[in-house]
């Protein structure tokens, strides 16, 4: 009887369902929060689970660095094998929830020819954005009404939301990030 019970517990612990549901301890998807994308659709953070993805923090009015972050991401994607380059999801998080409305975010994707099948921008209230920025080690600060200073970080998350690699700063060599992406697929 005791044997049966331990067998039952073992099955429970190692069953594929349990394994699939349990997030790794260091997953950023532990942060229960509901975001909104450029089509005003609600995106629970756990919905991002399932595929490795690139994540970066931007704001759409940004004149200096954000266009550079976007082009750096494009550059990274272009260096990947072709099937991966067109399928690797990219999630952008706005740092300015007041000005970056879903319409504004949608227009930004269009303007920069970013395919919505691959690219998405998410917004939420300012507290949740602060929490998420800390989970990625991103610092930012409003400098004036129209300008935010922020760290330039491109992050690779694995399918479970664990940070695998980060490009911190735009001059950093992209090779280590690219190697990580390729080896994680």
């Amino acid at each position: 009887m005791k044997f049966l019970r331990s067998l039952f517990i073992l099955i429970l612990v190692f069953s594929p369902v349990t394994l699939a549901n349990q997030l790794p301890a260091s997953s950023v998807y532990h942060f229960d929060s509901a975001w909104m994308n450029q089509n005003s659709q609600t995106r629970e953070i756990v919905e991002l689970r399932g595929e490795a993805r690139l994540v970066a923090f931007i704001y759409t009015y940004c004149e200096h660095t954000c266009p550079l972050i976007i082009s750096k991401i494009k550059d990274v994607l272009h260096s990947l094998p072709r099937d991966l380059a067109t399928r690797m999801p990219v999630t952008l998080i706005t740092l300015d929830p007041v000005r970056d409305t879903p319409d504004q975010m949608k227009a930004y994707l269009l303007k920069n020819s970013l395919n919505e099948k691959q690219w998405e921008i998410l917004t939420d209230n300012k507290e949740d954005i602060r929490v998420l920025s800390n989970l990625f080690g991103v610092k930012y600060k409003a400098m004036s009404k129209d300008e935010l200073a922020h760290s330039n970080v491109i992050t690779l998350l694995d399918a479970d939301g664990v940070i695998l690699s980060q490009l911190r700063g735009l001059n950093e060599d992209k090779k280590s990030l690219i190697d990580k992406i390729i080896s994680s697929f």
Partner: peptide, 18 residues
């Protein structure tokens, strides 16, 4: 404070980690 991670950021966001 809510925005402790705004310390050490400059207006010069073109620099690497600002």
């Amino acid at each position: 404070v809510s925005d402790f991670n705004s310390a050490l950021v400059t207006g010069e966001s073109r620099g690497d980690s600002a």
